[in-house]
Amino acid sequence: MTRGTIQNRDAFLQTIAERLGRAPRLSGVSRPQWDCAPQWTVFAGYSQDDLLNVLQKQCGLIHTDYIETTSAELAGALRRQVAAYGGGPVIVPDDPRFAEYGLSALLQDEWPAEQTAVHTWNPALGRQNIDAAEQANVGIAFSDITLAESGTVVLFSRNEQGRAIHFLPKTYIAIVPKSTVVPRMTQAAAAIHEQIEKGGLVPSCINFITGPSNSADIEMNLVVGVHGPMKAAYIVVTDR
């Protein structure tokens, strides 16, 4: 990674320090212990089942279809949901979890055999991935962390999982392993922060996605589906 440039910093920070009436502070500041931490009290002590209930209720508020299934039934549930959204083309990341969750046959044989085109994100194909995402009717991805309170799926970008999968298709389906569900954004932020403290690099894009795209810019009427997907579904896998 080539280091980027930084311009005009010294004078800029000097001005700030002067205004604050002290010498510049360029190192040695640490985050204080904040006086209170109300964010950690939300759904404290909830079981995984309690959290699923919260998630399900929230999905009603965010115009998101909520489906519960098991890993044995997942392929069927996914096939039905894609059909309900009007079928293919489908775009998916190149994610080993598709095989682990028994979806390889669906992706590689069954859908193609019935003319449902499946594009698997492949970084070697460059811009073609974006064209495929633009043409896709459904984008499908696995949630990395799921926030019960807000009904949010968290997705980390990687070479095999481009950003456009979540935004360009007309509809969107997130597969949510039950074990990924946490109370709220607090737990996700803490986990990411911990990785950074350990010297880890955050991916170039982290998406917190909560239902389909919407806008209230016209007379404050909620319009679901503006720039991103117009419909969204979460398929929760209860035994994973």
Partner: peptide, 24 residues
Amino acid sequence: AVGQKLTSYITVLTGPRDEGDADG
């Protein structure tokens, strides 16, 4: 701002695309 628990999209971006990414 809008009485929502979170808005539909909260996106955290770091630098340009990672090496080997096809978008960003």
